[in-house]
Amino acid sequence: MKITDFFRKKSSSEVAKDRLKFLLVSDGLCSPEVMELIKNDIIEVISKRLEIDAQGLEIQLTETETEDNGRAPTICANIPIKSIRRK
């Protein structure tokens, strides 16, 4: 984020667009089934390299700030690692 952006007030249409982007992503993921599928996929991929605590894994939808001062929907995952898997 640039310093000039800090002083620029976002127009209401930019606010609307950011809100909509987040809404549509969260609407699409809102069913617990979809979240569960994503969670299982993540477990599968990470387990190739690391031994993780699958029970302790948490994922949720949040927002992060983009470079142009907007907001983007983001999936946040907390994955407790048990050990690095060596083959």
Binding site: S12, S13, K17, L20
Partner: peptide, 16 residues
Amino acid sequence: MVKRGDMLSVNDVCDI
């Protein structure tokens, strides 16, 4: 309103 930045433009809606 689109010009003023107070309404989503046609392109915005199509993008979404």
